[in-house]
Write a protein that binds this DNA or RNA. Structure first.
Lengths: 146, 146
DNA sequence: GTAACTGCAAAATATTTGCATCCTT
DNA sequence: AAGGATGCAAATATTTTGCAGTTAC
């Protein structure tokens, strides 16, 4: 007699994908795991040349877009051209991102972090303007580099 | 006897270029004038297909980069891929941008504005982090569209 | 089995570089 | 006249699209 196991292993990655009605595929699992394995944000290039893995460029584009659409990850605005993605930890849903935390770009190690504990401040806009979303990106030196 | 005139006409565009030790060329004047002529931000594409003008693509790239380097314009961080530029109205200098205003992206007309009167709020960072610059981008509906 | 996902090829876009020519100072 | 700026050609890089084969459910 062998030990009973549930037939669905509740890996975090799997459940995240299932929760969003996405097929659980090897590629998606690996890419999502990359986000979970580190605290920062990842660019398309980071993922494509990820250690040991060899992801097809197109699959990475499509996977990232799918994750953004589903509210699993979000893009981070940066003054330079680069597009970076980070896990959504707030209550994002399909078509609606609600990231109320700020983003921090370290000028030393060049990593990007979501500071989940720092809430975006209220902005007092001039008459006539109304805000849907406020994005804050702070540049400076991160905890690891200071 | 004729009225005395200075031999350097103080056109805004000319003086801006001279102040930054740049040769005053037709292309630079026209591109800089585009920024002065409207309140929003411009993308590379906006400039290239600017009404009536036909700018060489490469010249636009080089001119924008030159202006950024000199602190005449600055890039605006956006969550989507697009790169947009706006005039620096603060005290920017070569190699150091100091834009303390916020940026506003209208979800209706899709224009980007610098709200010069809205100062970026102070952000209280967690211990260990230090800030060099704070970028705020607000998305919503602008005055003209509301 | 069927719909969804992936990988390859290739198209479409965007950006950079080299160099000869032209313009500003 | 000399150095910088421009325009063209072409090299690179980035992103999108189509389609046939594969995989998840």
């Amino acid at each position: 007699m062998h030990k009973q196991t549930t037939h669905h292993h509740i890996h975090t990655v799997d459940s995240l994908l299932k929760k969003n009605q996405l097929s659980v595929t090897a590629g998606r699992k690996k890419i999502l795991q990359l986000f979970l394995d580190q605290p920062g944000a990842l660019s398309h290039g980071d993922i494509e040349k990820s250690a040991g893995e060899k992801f097809d460029r197109v699959t990475v584009y499509r996977t990232l877009q799918t994750f953004v659409d589903k509210g699993i990850i979000h893009t981070i605005p940066t003054a330079d051209n680069s597009v970076r993605y980070a896990l959504c930890k707030d209550d994002c849903s399909e078509g609606h991102h609600h990231d109320h935390h700020i983003h921090f770009v370290c000028n030393h190690c060049h990593q990007t972090f979501c500071l989940d504990d720092v809430v975006t401040p209220a902005i007092k806009l001039p008459r006539g303007y109304s805000a849907d979303q406020v994005e804050v990106v702070v540049e400076g030196i991160c905890r690891n580099c200071s």
